[in-house]
Amino acid sequence: MDLSPLPEIMVEPIVRAALLEDLGRAGDITSDAIVPAHYSTGMDLVVRQHGVVAGLDCARLAFHLMDPSIAFRPVLADGASVVPGAVIAQVEGPGRGLLTAERTALNLMCHLSGIATATAGLVQAVAGHKAQIVCTRKTTPGLRALEKHAVRAGGGSNHRFGLDDAVLVKDNHIAIAGSVGEAVARVRAHAGHMVKIEVEVDTLAQLDELLGLGVDAVLLDNMTPDLLAQAVTMVSGRMITEASGRVNLESAPAIAASGVDLISVGWLTHSAPILDIGLDAA
């Protein structure tokens, strides 16, 4: 997988804030008391479950910000599949810095690797169909760029990053506007010509109204696989079709078999279980 890393200027403030939160007002009083100031050692970041790795740059920055003399040597890269016992990276340097940065590095890596692992599972579940697995804006505040990068590490793709990079007309917008057509008309009068428009529909009747409006994509919300298949037939390639709602490892294959282009999954970023990773003495 050719996965470009996020620019460090995007990642560093997040890692710095996490370290500062952990250091509090007095720093690591436990390590300062127990570990001699000039004690150095080496440790390994070791995975304890099958999964997919993400967040290596976060771990590297956590150690580097804590003590620039700590050497961080990655063994694997984001997007790598791992088995229990695999060494992800090696760190070496002052013991105090290693132990102080440990929790921040692991918190971020475990969380992001969990997202990558969950994404990879869904991608595998829909293999053989054209549907792509995409994430949503249901992200942890402050971590959106990292979490969406982790989805890509797991083989998924990203939906819009925020409210400003695409229009998504949802049920409350339609209720306020009075109809699908009126909502789209208001968007077209307001948005620039480069902005793509997607509209959420709950019924085939709403979809039928939408078909004549020439929008870019339709979000088919909480439809059964049978209804999704009917919707895909109605659309007949005139716009991108996206399914959402009740997506898990068991339901994903049937949803993908309906012929939709995208399957969006909110829990990938807000509820994926962590991948267990530890920092062990080398």
Rank of each mutant, 00 (worst) to 15 (best):
P7Y: 10
I9N: 14
V11D: 13
E12H: 02
E12K: 15
A18Q: 05
A18Y: 01
E21I: 00
G27Y: 05
D28Q: 08
I34Q: 10
S40M: 08
M43F: 06
V47C: 15
R48L: 14
H50I: 04
V53E: 01
D57G: 11
R60A: 15
M66A: 08
D67Q: 14
I70K: 09
P74C: 11
P74M: 12
D78I: 04
D78W: 04
G79Y: 08
A80S: 15
P84H: 12
V87I: 15
A89I: 08
A89T: 06
P94A: 13
G95N: 06
L98F: 06
L99F: 11
T100Y: 01
T104A: 07
A105H: 12
M109Q: 13
M109R: 02
T117R: 11
A120F: 00
V123F: 03
K130H: 15
C135H: 11
T139N: 10
R144N: 11
A145P: 00
E147S: 01
V151P: 04
G154D: 04
G155M: 03
H159A: 13
F161W: 12
D165P: 12
A166W: 06
V169H: 07
V169E: 08
H173I: 01
A177L: 05
A177M: 06
V184R: 04
R186S: 01
V187L: 15
R188Y: 07
A189K: 13
G192K: 05
H193T: 12
H193A: 14
V195H: 03
K196M: 04
D202P: 00
A205E: 15
A205N: 12
D208C: 00
L210S: 08
L211H: 12
G212C: 10
L213H: 11
G214I: 13
G214T: 13
G214N: 10
V218F: 05
L220T: 01
N222T: 03
M223L: 14
Q230G: 02
A231K: 04
G237Q: 05
G237H: 07
T241E: 02
G245K: 06
G245W: 13
E250D: 14
A252P: 01
A252N: 00
A256S: 08
A256D: 02
A257P: 06
S258Y: 01
S258K: 01
D261E: 10
I263L: 10
L268W: 12
A272S: 15
A272M: 07
D276S: 13
G278Y: 00
G278N: 06
L279D: 07
